[in-house]
Amino acid sequence: MDYEAEKLFEEPGMIQITTWARGVLQNKDARDVVFALANAASKEGKYVQAWENYVDLPDRVNVPVRSYAKISPKPIESRYIYENENPDVVVLTEETLVKGVSVLEDLKPGGVLIVNTKRDSKYILQFLDDTSNLGMLGCVDATGVAGYVKTLSGAEGATDASGIGAGVGAVLAGAIAKAKEIVKLDDLLDAVKNKEACKYGYENVKLMNVNNPNEAASAVKTRENKYGYDTLPFAGTVHSPKKENKGMVTGSWKTKRPVFDKDRCKGCLMCWLDCPDGAVLKTDEGFVDFDLKYCKGCGICVAVCPAGAVTMVPELDFVN
């Protein structure tokens, strides 16, 4: 047989929404974005599904995790194609996800990116690695009008007894409704708890056209398993890293970066001792340096420093 996968597997009119968030503290709001949209679309008679990525590790702090929705005018046939292959909309519950995380990978040509940020669209755009398929970028200060809802209710597929859309998720869902006609605002407002926040997102998202959708570059991609049976180590045995563990690069987990003030440092090395990731390095002069490739930005170094020589600075303040 000789078919093009793109045409053979097409589901006309289906919208895929992927939300990126950071770990256990934002997971609920990421889930709320996709559930609010799916519930609203369901009310409008569309076929929907909403779910969380099972492989990501939502029980940790700051690790990038994903939630998904599919909304379609016809019954969804790709129900168990587990990760959204080509999202129409990508949403970030936190701004630093633009840096070091390939959030636009496999975006559908002309797709939309919505970011929770106070910053300017152009400033955000410089951090994204491949914007060739990006049609529109929308920025909205969701955290400015609502907080992250911190609950485990609704995690692991269980019932969410806390309600949908009380925080940041409601603002972002509103912003999506403005950027792309997926559901009517009234139906979305019915689906969320914090209607003011949702309306704020709809009215205040700053949208910017990036590429003309017709000119957007590459087509649909198919995924491949990155491990071969002959390239994976025998029996999955893992040799202990001598210096660094390249299989577990965690630098993209941080939202804030430690900055070191040499004049204040007394060389006590408490930060070096307490860093859970070995990301504080001793220098020859008896001071310290930070390995940003692995630093998760947890701030323990700041907490244990008796001299106030380390401060945490928002990651996006740094262009590098």
């Binding site: 492989v55 398993n225 990155k226 491990y227 071969g228 049976y229 390239t231 994976l232 029996a235 999955g236 045995t237 893992v238 040799h239 202990s240």
Partner: peptide, 15 residues
């Protein structure tokens, strides 16, 4: 080395 390390789901099929 670690024998019996926890693996990701996509390492399961090759093993």
């Amino acid at each position: 080395q670690i024998i019996g390390a926890q693996i990701e789901p996509n390492m399961g099929p090759p093993l």
